Amino acid sequence: MDEQKLRNYEIQKVENSIWNPQIDEADLATECVQCGKPIDGDGVSIEIEERRYYLCCSSCEALFREEYEKLRTAADGE
């Protein structure tokens, strides 16, 4: 990244999944990394740069891929 060309930047978490299982709870669900909603059923699982991400639907997958690519491009200085 060329620091001379950098005007501003924003840092966002790419992965933000929270899982707090409780012994007395029957509803254990992974949260979508894009919208934070619990993933019902199969959801969508993708692998980017050797990391796996879990999303609730194809719409969140598309948004996640788009945002991830923007962040990667910005980090690479392209």
Rank of each mutant, 00 (worst) to 15 (best):
M1R: 12
E3M: 02
Q4F: 10
Q4P: 04
Q4Y: 10
K5I: 08
L6E: 07
L6F: 06
L6K: 05
R7I: 14
R7K: 11
N8Q: 12
N8T: 14
Y9R: 09
Y9D: 04
I11C: 04
I11M: 07
Q12P: 00
K13H: 13
V14G: 04
V14I: 15
E15M: 12
E15V: 10
E15A: 11
N16Q: 13
N16V: 10
S17W: 09
W19F: 15
N20A: 09
P21C: 07
P21I: 14
P21V: 15
P21A: 03
Q22M: 07
Q22R: 13
Q22G: 03
Q22E: 10
I23W: 13
D24F: 06
D24G: 08
D24H: 11
D24Q: 14
D24T: 12
E25Y: 05
E25R: 09
A26G: 15
A26R: 07
A26I: 10
A26L: 12
D27V: 11
D27P: 06
D27Y: 12
L28Y: 10
L28G: 11
L28N: 15
A29K: 12
C32H: 01
C32L: 01
V33P: 00
V33E: 11
Q34P: 00
Q34W: 06
C35L: 02
K37T: 03
K37E: 12
K37C: 05
K37Q: 12
K37D: 04
P38K: 09
I39T: 01
I39Q: 04
I39R: 02
I39F: 06
G41C: 14
G41W: 06
G41V: 15
D42I: 10
G43T: 02
G43E: 05
G43R: 07
G43N: 02
G43P: 04
G43S: 13
V44S: 00
V44N: 01
E47M: 13
E47F: 01
I48E: 10
I48Y: 13
I48F: 14
E49H: 11
E49S: 14
E50I: 07
E50V: 08
E50H: 14
R51T: 14
R51N: 14
R51F: 12
R51M: 13
R52C: 04
R52W: 03
R52Q: 09
Y53N: 01
Y54G: 02
Y54P: 00
L55W: 04
L55S: 02
L55R: 02
C56W: 01
C57H: 02
C57E: 03
C57F: 02
S58W: 05
C60Y: 02
C60Q: 02
E61H: 08
E61R: 14
A62R: 01
A62S: 07
L63N: 05
L63D: 09
R65M: 05
E66L: 13
E66K: 15
E66I: 06
E67Q: 07
E67D: 04
E69S: 09
E69K: 12
E69V: 03
K70E: 15
L71S: 13
R72M: 08
R72Q: 06
T73W: 08
T73V: 13
A74N: 03
A74W: 05
A74D: 04
A74E: 06
A74R: 04
D76I: 00
D76G: 00
D76T: 00
D76W: 00
G77V: 04
E78D: 13
E78P: 00
E78W: 08
